[in-house]
Amino acid sequence: MPSLMDTYIENREMVQPNHANNLDTVHGGNVMKWMDEVGAMSAIRFAGKSCVTARVDEMDFRRPVLVGDTAVIESYVYEAGETSVDVYLRAFRENPRTGERELTTESYFVYVGIDESGEPSPVPALTVESEEGERRQAEALDGLDA
Rank of each mutant, 00 (worst) to 15 (best):
A140R: 00
Y88C: 11
L23W: 08
E132R: 12
V85D: 01
D6G: 02
S42W: 07
T83V: 14
N30S: 06
E58N: 07
V72H: 02
E139Y: 12
E134C: 05
I114K: 02
T104S: 14
T83R: 13
F109D: 03
E106S: 10
S84Y: 07
D69C: 06
D69N: 14
E79K: 13
R93K: 12
A80S: 15
N22T: 11
E100I: 07
H27C: 07
T7E: 07
A146W: 05
N18G: 02
N22A: 12
F92M: 08
A91V: 09
R136L: 15
R135K: 11
D24M: 12
D57Y: 09
E79D: 15
P64Q: 05
S130V: 04
A138S: 10
A71E: 13
Y76V: 15
E106V: 06
V26I: 15
T104P: 05
G99R: 08
V72C: 07
Y108N: 12
G99L: 08
G118A: 09
R90W: 09
T105K: 02
E134H: 12
S84M: 08
L141H: 01
D57N: 12
E139T: 10
R45K: 14
K49P: 00
R62P: 07
N21H: 01
G99Y: 08
S75V: 01
P17H: 03
V67W: 06
Y8I: 06
V123Y: 02
M1P: 03
P122I: 06
A40H: 01
T53F: 03
D115N: 11
A146H: 12
V26P: 01
F109Y: 10
R55V: 13
F109P: 00
I114R: 01
E116K: 10
E139F: 12
Q16R: 09
A80T: 13
P120D: 08
A71K: 07
